[in-house]
Computed example of a mutant assay.
Amino acid sequence: MCDSPTVAVHLLADRPDLVVPVARLRWQEWGTEPGRQDLRWWIDVTGSEAGRTAPHVAFVAVSEADEAVGAVSIAPADLPERPALSPWVVGMIVQADRRGSGIGGALMSALQQWAAVSGISRLWVATGGPAVEFYRRCGWTVAEVLDRDNGEQATILTVRPGEPTRS
């Protein structure tokens, strides 16, 4: 089961003042990817995710100092190689110096609870590296390891929101 830190998790739609800080966290992590080097791109994408209903839903973790320290969103599609799978967890980020403190688990818990209440029967994520173990600790199972057309490898994991997670 995921650990829970001392943060508050909100719909990003309820905290529009945090769209730019969340976008900045994502840009700092992934802003070197081709076509995504401009902070404005991240602000636009993050803002478009800040809705209240699928597929435009994002959650933000807020510290006691009222700053964005993490975020996660869902999207209708992520991997062109798997168009039938939906919805996808995307943009999962925790401030670098706060990783391992349970913030990611709190975000995933909020997202999965929201998905269960919203009638979403399955969520998907494509990731790699240490993130695979993070998702497994949060109750996700590996569905496939995909050799992508661009030469990268992605581990696809899935979870059924609302089902009990294993410890």
Rank of each mutant, 00 (worst) to 15 (best):
49 E>G: 14
90 V>R: 00
58 A>Q: 01
53 T>P: 13
32 T>K: 12
126 A>H: 02
10 H>D: 08
47 G>S: 07
138 C>M: 09
80 P>C: 04
147 D>Q: 15
127 T>M: 03
126 A>Y: 03
96 A>F: 10
5 P>T: 14
150 N>Y: 10
61 A>D: 09
45 V>M: 11
105 G>N: 05
56 H>L: 13
124 W>K: 07
160 R>F: 14
40 R>C: 15
61 A>W: 08
154 A>D: 09
118 S>R: 02
63 S>E: 11
73 S>D: 00
13 A>R: 01
112 Q>P: 14
30 W>Y: 06
27 W>Y: 07
149 D>A: 14
121 S>P: 08
26 R>L: 12
95 Q>M: 15
66 D>N: 09
157 L>T: 05
34 P>E: 10
114 W>R: 01
163 E>K: 15
161 P>A: 04
144 E>R: 07
50 A>Q: 04
25 L>R: 08
31 G>A: 09
7 V>G: 06
50 A>F: 02
139 G>E: 06
158 T>L: 12
27 W>D: 04
92 M>T: 08
47 G>R: 04
86 S>T: 05
56 H>Q: 15
13 A>S: 09
30 W>Q: 04
161 P>E: 02
31 G>V: 11
131 A>G: 06
79 L>D: 02
74 I>Q: 00
114 W>G: 00
35 G>Q: 03
110 A>E: 05
114 W>K: 01
32 T>G: 08
150 N>Q: 12
10 H>S: 09
117 V>T: 15
48 S>E: 13
33 E>V: 13
158 T>V: 13
120 I>P: 01
43 I>E: 10
11 L>D: 10
108 M>E: 10
87 P>V: 00
10 H>W: 09
69 V>P: 01
73 S>A: 03
125 V>F: 00
58 A>K: 02
143 A>L: 14
126 A>K: 03
76 P>I: 02
92 M>L: 12
34 P>S: 11
41 W>A: 12
133 E>T: 12
17 D>G: 08
135 Y>T: 07
74 I>Y: 00
84 A>K: 11
90 V>Q: 01
85 L>W: 02
90 V>S: 00
138 C>Q: 07
114 W>Y: 01
49 E>N: 15
71 A>V: 01
92 M>R: 09
104 G>N: 04
100 G>I: 13
45 V>P: 09
135 Y>A: 04
67 E>R: 12
70 G>W: 09
111 L>G: 01
119 G>P: 03
58 A>T: 01
102 G>H: 07
10 H>G: 07
126 A>T: 05
38 D>Y: 15
166 R>L: 15
50 A>D: 11
24 R>Y: 05
122 R>K: 10
117 V>S: 13
